Amino acid sequence: MTTALQSPLHSAPVLRLRLAPRSELPRAIDGAWWPRSRDLLAELPQLLAGLPREWGHITSVTVNGAVWSAAPGRILVSNQVVRLHRALAANAPHTVVLLAPGRGRWDLVVVPPDTTEDAAEPLMAAAAAVPGTN
């Protein structure tokens, strides 16, 4: 008698995203994202799929071109075209900017993929904290 071993089902890794609570007041940073690699084409679809529905369809993403791997000017995510922009913003090297027409703009801190969990947790918590609370 032989026994066939089934490999466990492969599931997508958990999205490491922490968003600030909704507020009427504008924020400089709307949360934090901790991708697993610098491969934008691999990481971006999971990020966009995990965003709140009320953010609408993100049509434009701007990243720091110095820290992400090369990517085309646009990609198809869930049958929607998303334009990719690469900036060399020295003042915000670890951010990603998401735009949804008629809905808004969201700026997320990007925690570098090689950051340890102990170091990433306080960065993500700070980015999502309510201003004036500690």
Rank of each mutant, 00 (worst) to 15 (best):
P52S: 06
R53K: 12
E54K: 09
V67F: 13
A87P: 00
A49P: 04
A127N: 08
L25H: 14
A32Q: 06
V61M: 11
A71L: 04
P113M: 04
P101G: 08
T2S: 11
A129M: 10
P52Y: 01
A4E: 14
P131L: 12
L76W: 03
E117V: 12
N79S: 13
V67H: 12
N64L: 00
V96F: 02
L25A: 14
T2P: 06
T116E: 07
V111R: 05
P101A: 08
L88R: 12
V67W: 04
P113S: 01
A20G: 08
L51S: 00
A119D: 14
P52L: 02
R16P: 02
A120I: 09
P45D: 03
D114V: 08
L9D: 09
A70M: 04
P45I: 04
W68L: 05
V130R: 13
A32P: 01
E117D: 14
T59A: 11
P21L: 10
P8R: 10
L48T: 06
W68I: 03
L48D: 01
V97W: 08
P113L: 03
V110H: 03
A70L: 12
L15C: 08
N64P: 05
W68V: 01
W106I: 07
L9A: 15
R36H: 05
P122M: 13
L108V: 04
R83G: 03
I58K: 00
V96A: 06
L51N: 06
V81F: 06
A129G: 02
H94V: 02
A126G: 05
T62K: 11
T59E: 12
S7E: 14
P113Y: 02
H57Y: 13
H94N: 15
H10K: 15
E54W: 09
P101W: 09
D39L: 07
T2I: 12
A127L: 02
L15W: 01
E43S: 09
A12E: 15
R36A: 12
V109P: 00
P35K: 04
P26A: 10
R27H: 05
P26I: 08
G104V: 12
P21Q: 10
L5C: 09
N134E: 14
R22Q: 13
G132P: 04
A12I: 06
W55F: 12
L84A: 10
